[in-house]
């Protein structure tokens, strides 16, 4: 690790981030979108942890024989973020399950088509009622 200083850690994180971003905006399946979001999240974790790395450092557990430690602060932030991440992903999964129960599908196109069909049906109903009134 010590012989390769550079910016490639940022680039790896950016690549993963963009991969997750691509999945989120291009895929129609909601579960797949959530996987993409989780990928995005992991790229942020990697970015933070690589920021905390100090060349020649050791894991931040105190030992009298060790002088250089990596920065413990990003570790703390990411440690909690991972567990919070799984909790929020679970909320997303719960929403997907409810959407599937309501629409019978987790594909964006189907959901949009169902919504449009419903709105045209209700508007035609409303116009029919107006006709009946007149």
């Amino acid at each position: 690790m010590n012989e390769l200083p550079g910016l490639y850690n940022d680039w790896v994180a950016i690549f993963l981030m963009m991969a997750g971003f691509y999945v989120v905006i291009s895929q129609g399946n909601l579960v797949k979108k959530l996987v993409g979001l989780a990928l995005f999240q992991t790229s942020v974790f990697i970015l933070y942890i690589s920021l905390g790395k100090v060349a020649g450092g050791h894991a931040p557990i105190y030992d009298p024989a060790i002088a250089i430690y990596s920065n413990p602060l990003p570790h703390v932030l990411i440690l909690t973020a991972i567990v919070v991440g799984v909790a929020t992903t679970a909320v997303g999964l719960a929403l997907v399950v409810r959407i599937h129960e309501a629409y019978g599908s987790v594909e964006e196109d189907d959901i949009q088509a169902a919504d449009e069909a419903e709105s045209t049906a209700s508007s035609s109903e409303a116009s029919a009622e107006e006709d009946a009134k007149q």
């Binding site: 990697i46 942890i49 450092g57 557990i61 990596s70 990411i78 440690l79 991972i82 991440g85």
Partner: peptide, 21 residues
């Protein structure tokens, strides 16, 4: 990713990622 975190000295984070992720 957990293995990568281990390499970047973040043992606690690697641990959490392996268990959670």
């Amino acid at each position: 990713t957990a293995a990568l975190f281990m390499d970047l000295d973040a043992v606690d984070v690697a641990f959490t990622e392996a268990a959670v992720g």
